[in-house]
Amino acid sequence: MRKVGHRRRLQTDAVDARMLALFAAKSVDLRLWPPPAPETVELRGLRRRRDDLAQMIRIEQNRLEHPQIKHVERSLKRHVRAMSNEIKELDTQIAALVAATPEFRQKSGLLTSVIGVGLKTAAACLAYLPELGSLTKGEAASIVGLAPHAQDSGTLKGRRRISGGRREVRSSLYMAALTALRLDPAMQAFAHRLKERGKPAKVVITAIMRKLAVILNAVLKTGEPARRTHSA
Rank of each mutant, 00 (worst) to 15 (best):
9 R>N: 11
11 Q>H: 10
12 T>D: 09
21 A>V: 01
25 A>I: 04
28 V>C: 08
28 V>P: 00
32 L>S: 09
34 P>G: 00
34 P>V: 09
34 P>C: 05
34 P>H: 05
39 E>G: 05
44 R>D: 03
47 R>C: 06
51 D>G: 07
54 A>W: 00
57 I>C: 07
65 E>T: 13
66 H>I: 09
68 Q>N: 08
70 K>T: 11
70 K>F: 04
72 V>G: 00
74 R>F: 07
75 S>V: 01
75 S>L: 12
77 K>H: 09
80 V>S: 13
80 V>C: 11
82 A>R: 15
82 A>N: 12
83 M>I: 00
84 S>E: 15
87 I>T: 03
89 E>R: 14
90 L>R: 04
90 L>C: 03
93 Q>A: 13
98 V>L: 04
103 E>R: 14
105 R>D: 13
109 G>Y: 01
110 L>P: 06
114 V>G: 00
115 I>D: 02
128 Y>I: 02
128 Y>K: 01
137 K>N: 12
147 A>S: 10
149 H>R: 10
156 L>R: 13
161 R>F: 08
164 G>K: 02
164 G>P: 04
169 V>M: 08
169 V>D: 03
172 S>A: 13
177 A>N: 07
178 L>Y: 04
179 T>S: 15
181 L>Q: 14
181 L>I: 03
183 L>K: 14
184 D>W: 01
189 A>L: 09
189 A>Q: 14
190 F>Y: 11
191 A>S: 04
193 R>N: 13
195 K>P: 01
195 K>C: 00
197 R>C: 06
198 G>T: 10
208 I>M: 05
213 A>D: 08
217 N>K: 05
220 L>A: 08
222 T>W: 04
223 G>K: 01
227 R>K: 11
229 T>M: 00
229 T>E: 13
229 T>D: 14
230 H>Y: 15
